[in-house]
């Protein structure tokens, strides 16, 4: 399983591509690709977003679903999705959880 991630051009914020076709500031709303065709579609959308200068450093990353939550397989991506492990007051981990936040965090 994979999700599409990047950093937003204007401020560098780590973002993930959602099933609503928008970039979100947390991984929770990311569209999960479950087969090769879906991977390729996300990859293509990533390239298009890069070409439109919305995002940079676009990457398709491996994830798993744990209790319904998306969890990247690599530690690097888990830290990107959460924030520095030594500063839990910073990054995504310092924000309200998705249940409180709604689906409005897209850009």
């Amino acid at each position: 399983m994979k999700v599409l991630t990047a950093n937003r051009l204007i401020d560098g914020e780590a973002v993930w591509f959602g099933s609503d076709q928008r970039w979100h500031e947390t991984i929770d709303y990311a569209e999960v690709a479950r087969d090769k065709a879906a991977d390729e579609r996300l990859e293509r959308l990533g390239k298009e977003a890069f070409a439109r200068n919305e995002v940079v450093d676009v990457d398709l990353i491996d994830v798993e679903l744990l209790g319904g939550e998306i969890r990247p397989l690599r530690l690097r991506e888990r830290i990107r999705a959460a924030g520095p492990t030594n500063r839990t007051d910073l990054g995504k981990q310092a924000r309200p959880r998705p249940a409180d936040e709604g689906f409005a965090a897209g850009i």
Partner: peptide, 28 residues
């Protein structure tokens, strides 16, 4: 010009690096 889309990331990257701007995990 970068934010207006007039130059590409490939063109901009060396320019930002010359001015000390990297892209890291969470941000620039």
């Amino acid at each position: 010009r970068r934010l207006a889309g007039e130059i590409t990331e490939d063109q901009f990257r060396p320019l930002r690096l010359m001015n000390g701007v990297y892209l890291q995990l969470h941000a620039y």
